[in-house]
């Protein structure tokens, strides 16, 4: 082996060792941070008397085992409500996010220094505030009922749909746009015949994915007074009917699984 080759090998091995040491240091720092957090939060903040022995925990868990079949006929209506709230919320979210998409895509935004940050702000607001908080806000604004849930879901969906669609529009091929302009199309025709056909499959796929997530979200909005399975869950928990709680969770699981299957096939059909 020549000297040059062995020197470069030495350099390579040294770099590899350095990387490896750095990685282990990061792991060590993570472990230390975890111990510190565990000690300060979980150990200090837990009421160990209340938890009791392992047997007590197991018996508390055991209460939840089993399915309350008597509850199943009462679940159809809330399950339907949950799906409807998710669907309406997603649709309303799609309508609401049109301005956010328009302003938030760098290549079609009307006046970038103002409208682009505005759209980004809309997206961040929608994504950073949890659906429970949105639901509380809308319950205060429009009163109890499904409408508050629909609005909460809609506002919460804006961020994700707008972000993904704006990114899709930023990536689009400019040639069809030029072609439509060259034959004398106006802005609206450019949008309808050049931009929309390019981004529609991606957008529909995002919307369906969001709908699937929204089923999961709308299943808990009943906790703050917006109807659906969450309300049944809350009632079963408050009446200490623990098998009933398990039943509702199983129903949510089935619902989400159905949503996933539908979303899988529809997205496959669209793309």
């Amino acid at each position: 082996m020549t000297a040059a080759a062995s020197a470069s090998l030495d350099r390579y091995m040294a770099a590899r060792g350095r990387n490896r040491r750095r990685r282990w240091l990061i792991y060590l720092a993570m472990a230390v941070a975890a111990i510190w957090c565990l000690n300060d939060t979980v150990v200090a903040d837990t009421d160990w008397e209340r938890i009791g022995s392992l047997g007590a925990i197991l018996s508390a868990v055991g209460e939840f085992i089993g399915i309350d079949w008597g509850l199943v006929p009462n679940l159809w209506q809330p399950a339907l409500e949950t799906i409807m709230v998710a669907t309406l919320g997603t649709l309303l979210g799609v309508i609401t996010c049109i301005p956010a998409i328009w302003f938030g895509a760098m290549n079609i935004t009307p006046y970038a220094p103002v409208t682009y940050p505005l759209a980004r702000l809309m997206m961040t607001l929608s994504r950073s505030i949890h659906e429970i908080v949105w639901a509380l806000f809308f319950v205060a604004a429009v009163g109890l009922g499904a409408l508050a849930g629909v609005l909460a879901i809609a506002v919460r969906s804006v961020g994700f749909i707008a972000k993904m669609s704006a990114e899709a529009i930023e990536d689009l091929d400019p040639k069809p746009v030029e072609a439509i302009r060259a034959v004398g199309g106006n802005d609206f025709q450019v949008f309808l015949y050049a931009i929309l056909p390019q981004v529609l499959p991606a957008m529909i796929s995002v919307i369906i994915f969001e709908w699937e997530i929204n089923i999961r979200r709308s299943s808990i909005l009943g906790l703050v007074g917006a109807g659906g399975l969450g309300l049944v869950f809350f009632r079963q928990l408050n009446t200490f009917n623990h098998p009933g709680v398990t039943t509702v969770i199983a129903a949510i699981l089935v619902l989400v699984l159905l949503g996933e299957i539908v979303s899988h096939y529809v997205r496959k059909a669209v793309i």
């Binding site: 979980v42 837990t46 906790l223 949510i252």
Partner: peptide, 28 residues
């Protein structure tokens, strides 16, 4: 993975609070 993802985090929180009592442990 499907089951843990399908059940919303607030439902997990409520369940753990019922079993283990209030506090960070349920949240974690």
């Amino acid at each position: 993975t499907m089951g843990t993802r399908a059940v919303h985090e607030t439902i997990w929180a409520i369940l753990f609070v019922t079993i283990l009592g209030f506090g960070m442990m349920a949240g974690v």
